[in-house]
Amino acid sequence: MRTLLNKHALITGGGSGIGLAIARRLYAEGCSVTLLGRTEATLRQAQSLIVSSDHEENDGVKRVSYHPLDVSSPSSWQDLLKRCGTVHVLVNCAGITQRSALMKTPVDEVDELVGTNLTGTVLGCKYVGRAMLLKSRSRALLPRTTTEEEGVTAEGVKEKGVIVNVASLLAQKGVVGTSVYAAAKAGVVGLTTSLANEYGRSGIRVNAVLPGYIETDMTSGLKNPSILQQIPLGRFGTTDEVADAALFLIKNPYANNCVLNLDGGLSAV
């Protein structure tokens, strides 16, 4: 398992819930993290929570930064990458939920659901993936052969970065009132498997974690006996448990195209 000491991670949706839990875990591993989201006040509060949880580090503020970002905006991504320096890890965790039948879901809400849950992930993979490759290539000053250009050695392709996309169990399991959200998250899974092949050959690993019911603001009000009875483990998961899964996908150097269900066994029902 590779160290994250002195690495830099971008986390969309890093101001709360699963994104914040992943950010805290990466910070604890020695990684510098940049929290990304739409609301600056939320990001600032998340930064304070992460830094205040570490009583030994004096440089905590330097290792935790934030940047307001509209994930569905190409120009917002381009502006971010002009400012943030080298990126080793991208976690696409920004998401909004849906609780309405398709026929009752307004078209502008459909656009927002797809824009945040799918387009934002596509754009993150596109722009950050490109930056990972360019930063890696800019370090080399001497001409290289075709094989060296791709970073192939006796040990395989040299790693240039890693991307973890947070999808959802709903990408694979139909639940009434989540059709657009589910379609977007299924798109994230398809994106992940395609890029694991496309990017993997250039040294960028791409994986996905598919959480089931996790205790966050998005699932508030859903914790009732009928749902709990469906889950073989009989409970909702925690954000820290999702962070554990994301950390494995980030650190394991042979993890590419891993689509990891984390749902207490609900996908088996």
Score class of each variant (00 low, 15 high):
residue 178 T to P: 06
residue 244 D to E: 14
residue 154 A to L: 11
residue 209 V to Q: 05
residue 206 V to C: 02
residue 109 E to Q: 13
residue 152 V to N: 03
residue 128 V to N: 04
residue 188 V to D: 04
residue 114 V to W: 11
residue 221 G to D: 10
residue 192 T to Q: 01
residue 168 S to G: 07
residue 151 G to K: 05
residue 154 A to Y: 02
residue 122 V to W: 12
residue 121 T to L: 05
residue 197 N to Q: 11
residue 228 L to K: 05
residue 138 S to T: 07
residue 121 T to H: 07
residue 196 A to N: 05
residue 233 L to G: 00
residue 235 R to L: 04
residue 209 V to L: 03
residue 193 T to V: 14
residue 113 L to T: 07
residue 214 I to R: 08
residue 107 V to Q: 00
residue 214 I to E: 05
residue 199 Y to T: 01
residue 160 K to M: 03
residue 184 A to C: 08
residue 193 T to S: 06
residue 212 G to M: 06
residue 240 D to R: 14
residue 137 R to H: 12
residue 215 E to C: 00
residue 245 A to P: 05
residue 151 G to N: 06
residue 185 K to D: 04
residue 147 T to A: 03
residue 186 A to Q: 05
residue 144 R to E: 12
residue 159 E to Q: 13
residue 118 L to T: 14
residue 213 Y to A: 09
residue 207 N to W: 03
residue 128 V to S: 00
residue 204 I to F: 03
residue 145 T to M: 02
residue 112 E to R: 15
residue 202 S to Q: 13
residue 120 G to D: 07
residue 164 V to N: 03
residue 196 A to I: 11
residue 193 T to Q: 14
residue 195 L to Q: 08
residue 160 K to P: 02
residue 165 N to C: 06
residue 214 I to K: 06
residue 153 T to V: 07
residue 198 E to N: 13
residue 122 V to H: 04
residue 105 T to L: 15
residue 195 L to M: 10
residue 204 I to C: 05
residue 161 G to W: 08
residue 206 V to S: 00
residue 155 E to R: 10
residue 166 V to P: 08
residue 184 A to Y: 07
residue 125 C to G: 08
residue 243 A to H: 09
residue 107 V to I: 13
residue 133 L to N: 09
residue 186 A to D: 04
residue 196 A to G: 15
residue 182 A to R: 13
residue 245 A to K: 01
residue 136 S to N: 13
residue 115 G to M: 10
residue 217 D to K: 13
residue 125 C to F: 02
residue 144 R to F: 00
residue 229 Q to L: 12
residue 185 K to V: 03
residue 181 Y to P: 05
residue 109 E to N: 04
residue 216 T to Q: 05
residue 121 T to G: 02
residue 244 D to P: 00
residue 225 P to V: 09
residue 215 E to S: 12
residue 234 G to M: 12
residue 171 A to H: 08
residue 190 G to F: 00
residue 181 Y to M: 05
residue 196 A to W: 13
residue 192 T to S: 02
residue 207 N to M: 04
residue 204 I to K: 01
residue 151 G to L: 10
residue 176 V to K: 14
residue 183 A to K: 06
residue 147 T to M: 10
residue 197 N to K: 15
residue 169 L to P: 11
residue 192 T to R: 01
residue 183 A to T: 10
residue 105 T to K: 04
residue 138 S to F: 07
residue 155 E to P: 00
residue 227 I to S: 06
residue 167 A to E: 03
residue 119 T to H: 07
residue 206 V to I: 00
residue 122 V to F: 10
residue 165 N to D: 08
residue 230 Q to R: 15
residue 220 S to I: 04
residue 148 E to N: 08
residue 119 T to Q: 07
residue 136 S to E: 11
residue 134 L to T: 13
